[in-house]
Simulated scan of single mutants.
Amino acid sequence: MPLPADFWDDGEYALTYVSGPPSDPLIASVEAELGYRLPASYVALMRTHNGGLPRRPCCPAPTPTTWAEDHIEVHGIMGIGRDLRYSLAGAGGSHFWMEEWGYPAIGVYFADCPSAGHDMIAFDYRSCGSGGEPQVVHVDQERDYRITVLAPDFATFVESLRPERDYDEEL
Rank of each mutant, 00 (worst) to 15 (best):
D70M: 06
E73I: 02
R143T: 08
Y86K: 10
A68K: 15
E159G: 09
S115I: 07
E133K: 08
Y109W: 12
T48R: 15
V43G: 03
A40D: 15
W97T: 06
H138D: 10
I80G: 00
T156C: 07
P64K: 05
Y125I: 01
T65W: 11
P134G: 07
G102L: 02
P163D: 02
L150S: 01
G90K: 09
R165K: 10
P114A: 04
G117Q: 05
C113N: 10
P39E: 12
W101G: 05
T48M: 13
E100P: 03
T66G: 08
A68N: 13
A116Y: 12
A105V: 03
H118M: 09
A151V: 00
C58S: 04
S87N: 13
A61T: 06
T148S: 11
D124N: 11
L84E: 02
W97G: 10
D124E: 08
E133H: 06
R56M: 07
G52W: 05
M46L: 03
S41Y: 02
C113D: 15
H118L: 06
I72P: 00
P54C: 15
G117F: 11
A89V: 07
I121Y: 02
A105H: 15
E100Y: 13
Y125P: 06
F96W: 14
G107K: 14
W97K: 10
P57E: 04
H138C: 02
V149S: 10
S87G: 09
F123N: 12
G93E: 01
G90Y: 04
V108W: 00
P54A: 08
R56E: 14
C59A: 12
G93N: 01
G117S: 02
V158K: 01
A116I: 08
A155S: 13
V149L: 09
M46A: 05
L45I: 09
P39A: 13
T48Q: 15
D83V: 14
V139W: 00
G117C: 07
M98R: 07
T65E: 13
T66C: 14
I80H: 00
V137N: 06
R82A: 08
E100W: 09
Y86E: 09
T156M: 06
G81T: 00
G79Y: 06
A111E: 02
C58I: 10
V158Q: 03
Y125D: 03
I121F: 07
G81H: 01
L38V: 04
S160T: 05
S127F: 11
P64R: 13
C58H: 05
E159P: 11
R146T: 09
Q141L: 09
P54M: 12
D124Y: 12
G129Y: 10
N50M: 01
E69I: 10
F157D: 09
Q135W: 08
R126E: 00
A122C: 07
L88S: 05
G131A: 06
E99F: 12
W67C: 03
I147L: 07
G102Q: 05
Y42F: 04
E159L: 11
Y145L: 00
A151P: 03
N50S: 00
P62E: 14
E99S: 14
R143A: 14
D112M: 03
R85D: 15
A122S: 09
C113E: 07
Y145S: 04
L53C: 11
R82E: 09
H75K: 14
R37A: 13
E133S: 09
P39D: 13
Y42V: 01
G117N: 02
I72V: 14
G81V: 00
V74E: 08
Y86M: 15
P62S: 07
S94P: 10
C113A: 11
Y145H: 04
P39V: 13
N50F: 01
